[in-house]
Design a protein around this nucleic acid. Structure first.
Lengths: 269, 269
DNA sequence: TAAATAGTGTCTATCAGACACTATGTG
DNA sequence: CACATAGTGTCTGATAGACACTATTTA
């Protein structure tokens, strides 16, 4: 029997059962800190442990729809307008779930400051958690190495259920990278925003501070990044300063030229 | 019954069966053209149609391993050394496979010029196919929009089985983008290569021509991109010219600064 | 010899980042 | 008033790209 004959005769229904889930790395900025939406598991395995919100993909539901549904359920939002949701990666180590074979398709969500999640009437809790509390490895300025299975990668702690620490890490790195060449920073702020608010997003997600004057000029010089509303804030800053002009997201989907993260020469190799 | 109680009681084993497959977008350069590995289907659905190589993920096999196995089976290679293989994205529209619910985890492989695939003894054919023959949409200089299901995106033809045209398109765009900021171009050439060979990779994948002198200086100025072997080619070019120095891949995993594609201002929005 | 190519030198327009400064607001 | 911030001007070092040129090899 050749390999091909074997495959042709392979009946997927005869497989041991496989389940497909979606897990969502939902990020928002609260109190000048990057937060991730976590839920506390109410049943084994990992009972009591915190995990990313997620669940099984239902029949006749596509992957994006499943992620959007899970996110809406946990945040209590009925509409996900102004929430950016994109596929991140899939995770399928054979033993990542002790119950059975589970392949998880992870999504990343970026949202403006949302209310506390409605933890509902059942035992599970849900909360926005500052990522600094999770003790993740530092930002690498590199994309995740997706050539090898996740569990063989170094530097990962395991504080969340399943392999969710790894998924969260990958989501954070994706968010940090996408701020460079996409206008996604506007997903973290309101419908109208000042350049200083946008700068605060970059500083929070990347860590560190950016030069206010240069950032201002740079943002306005990228075609289609932001678009003036013609209005200004009602008041100046809480500690003084002129009133700032307000902007809306522009129509660019890619930033040219990009806003590159400050020097990271040493982290390159 | 609340949503949460419903979920908690949900037994995944009671689901309609779900299958998980891997599909591989394997790219190589042959005769100065970008080629993709395709197989001709020998059984319904889409019998006789061309498709990406792929198959079901087996028990106790991780996703990367499944992709590597499928690639090795189709190329007839026992070792995948010098082949770059990374996860691309997952595709799960409910009706993407008429037989049953199938979620596919796609991988992208980049390889130096490989021999013709061993199409084996059975009915299926396998071949390297120049992508220019497939009539795909033009390069967009944008990353694929992963926020929405694939089939809602415009500009996709449907020449391959299932949604494989979309997967191929996404793989091509990933490859084009990664040449900018990663040293993956070296995956397309031999263990030792000249700068001109590397330039040919960029020109083939991106389309168009690059300035030879500036490209040469730029490549050598990126730390860790290439590393001199100290040797040169045995002969000059077929139509004259001095012998070229030979290089190996360096130890950089990210290119700083990146090699950006020539001006694409108009395609930004 | 003629032609092609590897590799280097040089000039210029552009840009990122540092620094400075003014205007406008708060307490 | 003291101080903070929005927004702009300006300078400098680095760089991408255009162009030119030399050296080397093949037919």
């Amino acid at each position: 029997m050749t390999e091909e004959e074997f495959l042709a005769s392979y009946d997927p229904r005869a497989f041991p059962p496989v389940a497909v889930t979606v897990d969502v790395v939902a990020l928002t900025i609260r109190d000048a800190a990057l937060n991730v939406l976590l839920v506390q598991r109410g049943s084994p395995p990992y009972e009591g442990a915190w995990a990313l919100p997620g669940g099984f993909v239902r029949p006749a539901e596509d992957l994006y729809g499943a992620a959007a549904r899970e996110l809406a359920e946990e945040t209590g939002l009925t509409t996900l307008r102004r929430v950016h949701l994109e596929q991140l990666a899939s995770y399928g180590a054979p033993d990542r779930d002790p119950r059975m074979r589970v392949i998880s398709v992870a999504y990343m969500a970026l949202a403006p400051d949302l209310p506390d999640p409605a933890s509902g009437t059942d035992a599970r809790a849900a909360a926005w958690v500052p990522i600094a509390l999770l003790g993740l490895p530092e930002a690498t300025h590199e994309e995740p190495d997706r050539t090898r299975p996740a569990r063989q990668r170094p530097g990962t702690t395991r504080r969340l259920a399943f392999d969710h620490t790894q998924i969260l890490f990958d989501g954070l790195e994706r968010a940090r990278a996408k701020l460079e060449y996409s206008p996604l920073a506007t997903s973290f702020v309101g419908e109208e925003f000042t350049i200083a608010e946008l700068r605060a997003v970059y500083e929070t997600v990347w860590g560190g501070t950016l030069h206010a004057g240069n950032f201002h000029r740079k943002v306005l010089s990228v075609p289609g990044f932001v678009e003036s509303t013609g209005t200004s804030t009602e008041r100046g800053g809480p500690r003084g300063g002129p009133r700032a002009r307000l902007y809306r997201p522009g129509d660019a989907r890619v930033l040219h030229p990009p806003l590159l993260r400050p020097a990271h020469e040493e982290s390159v190799r």
